[in-house]
Design a protein around this nucleic acid. Structure first.
Lengths: 132, 132
DNA sequence: CGTTATGTTTACGTGCGCGTCAACTTTAGC
DNA sequence: GCTAAAGTTGACGCGCACGTAAACATAACG
């Protein structure tokens, strides 16, 4: 009945991942569910981390990169050396993302152009068929 | 001495990929180098396609998705049915990319916030050390 | 003419991110 | 008290995107 923790099934349904995935992430030290006997209980912290993991994946970051990034979000319980390392890491990732966004904008523009081209080609092909 | 084609080595250096990668892409029908005897010669078309492949990869598209997208860029020599299929595919990919960009913008904003937080934590830690 | 560079095919190996059993324990409901 | 549901730990498997090594062909250079 503890609202602040979730079972593995609840996690699966809430975030649309498999139990295997959650255990896998734990084995990779991305999540740290507490144990009630054998069973895993996922805390609010785990949920926040999972959201960031799923986000990071969508942008092509590896789980290892994500793991390092996550450290910044747990800045509270860290020493200065570690924190400043995480900080530097995160700044680099940020730069990556900004570059990625710029390139994405370009690619979107290109693809739109190409779509217009395709639309014209299609129209031409259909016109031609009418004349056959 | 034909400027319009490149050997596999030239391709590797120009686009920073391995020969294995180029052969692999050919096997997956993403590239179609012509043959001079045994040797592959990569045309301008191959180069244009390779650029798009590398782009697509950066945005998390699979090689198979990229292959289908590429068909739109070769719209010239296609039948209507095929072309309209490519066109629909490309529209979907475009929607994907636009969603991805929006999410990326959000993520960038979040990460910036988190970086400010980290900077403050770092400053606090350093201040504390001074007082030790 | 031999060597070095560049190319080829074939085929097995690898790292990542999980999927998929198998075998077992624990908890919940009737 | 028994069954079904939900959980656990191995451990092997798989698809993708190549890496890597072997064995060989071809061409260029000195």
């Amino acid at each position: 009945m503890n609202d602040s923790v979730m079972t593995i099934r609840q996690m699966c349904e809430t975030y649309d991942v498999t139990a295997r995935t959650l255990r896998f992430y734990e084995s990779k030290e991305l999540l740290f569910p507490i144990r009630e006997g054998q069973k895993r209980l996922f805390t609010k912290r785990d949920r926040a981390r999972l959201k960031l993991i799923l986000r990071g994946k969508r942008f092509g970051f590896s789980l290892e990169e994500i793991r390092q990034l996550l450290d910044l979000y747990d800045a509270d319980d860290q020493q200065e050396v570690q924190l400043s390392r995480s900080y530097a890491m995160a700044r680099e990732r940020l730069a990556d993302m900004e570059r990625q966004r710029d390139e994405l904008d370009e690619t979107i523009a290109d693809l739109k152009e190409q779509l217009n081209w395709g639309a014209q080609r299609l129209a031409a092909l259909r016109q031609q068929q009418t004349n056959d």
